[in-house]
Design a protein around this nucleic acid. Structure first.
Lengths: 194, 194
DNA sequence: CCTACCGATCGGTAGG
DNA sequence: CCTACCGATCGGTAGG
């Protein structure tokens, strides 16, 4: 019945939670060790450095986002349909890794090179997938012809705040959140029939 | 005292910039002093603590947001018109205090009590002003009848990412940003004529 | 996984 | 605004 007694996993879970609530810099390895129930020095049998944990968290979530967009596009369909799925799957990733995604969004800047550049590059690549769908939508005459970089930015902003809106114990489920946000965004970017 | 208040401003500007780029916890008072060009101990002739600076930054921006919403509502008009102005003025605050507003959004959690609670309360009050406009819009039959807390959340998310999109040296001006975001949001929440 | 410990740095104070 | 300095804590290592 143990969710996981694997120490490494346990450390990562604690780190995700503390990095989110206190921030990476304000979380000491001693805080972390205490939460796990061992001495600080013992952490180093499982990790090589504090930043190592941050790196794992950030790149693991990056992976999940890429899998999500692959899945969104795999089924094909109109740009509208693909954008709806992209939003839904993106939010699904956030909701199912609620602490880790918050760390992904706010603590990545504490990565050092070369991981920092690699991280930024992955993010740009991911954003370009959304911009591509927007372009398709404009060409199909479904979406308004706007500054697509700004539009994708607006979409990401709305989606990424989910980690702040969703409470695992709350009444609002992940599907309700993604549907609500997708609703506003899709209607917001759609071409009017006139 | 001229020198003192000059220095104080200089310290605050440096703090806004460094708290934004490195985060509050990762910025030491020695980093700050170096940037200002004095010794760390000398900072304490102008500030009473590191957190003191953070407190000033956060509450100063809170003030600016309240002035913005007052101004938005003062002219009256339809809910649509007032929401457009609220979005525009909110983004205007972010753009004209670009570093400080980023600190406001991400570093407030390092405030200690009772300032922490006071800060959260101010934020809730500010959000309720937006929700009120949304309610008016629904009653006027202009806005769709949705979960307004979630809708206001989506609006804030889209607006607050401006600090990441706007570069003082870039080609995109503040007006272009606020117009773009307001555009998508207003169309996104509007009631369809059917 | 522990005890014992490292040098570096932290926010801040005393006294001039 | 400085020099000199405080105790506390930092990330991490040695050795068992």
């Amino acid at each position: 019945m143990e969710i996981t007694s694997d120490r490494k996993t346990q450390i990562r879970m604690a780190a995700q939670n503390m990095f989110r609530s206190k921030g990476y810099s304000a979380t000491s390895v001693r805080d972390l060790a205490k939460e796990v129930g061992i001495e600080a020095a013992s952490l180093y049998n499982h990790i090589s450095s504090k930043e190592d944990i941050l790196r794992e968290i950030c790149f693991h979530i990056a992976d999940a986002f890429f899998q999500a967009i692959e899945k969104s596009e795999a089924e094909g369909g109109s740009a509208t349909k693909r954008m709806e799925r992209a939003i839904e799957n993106h939010i699904e990733v956030i909701v199912s890794h609620i602490d880790a995604s918050s760390v992904f969004f706010h603590e990545w800047k504490h990565l050092s090179e070369p991981q920092l550049s690699e991280f930024k590059q992955l993010r740009r690549k991911y954003e370009s997938r959304f911009i591509q769908i927007l372009e398709d939508g404009v060409h199909e005459g479904r979406f308004r012809d706007m500054d697509l970089r700004m539009t994708s930015f607006t979409i990401f902003s709305a989606m990424n705040a989910t980690y702040d809106l969703y409470k695992p114990s709350g009444k609002i489920g992940p599907k309700a959140i993604s549907k609500h946000i997708a609703d506003i965004i899709i209607q917001g970017i759609h071409q009017h029939k006139s």
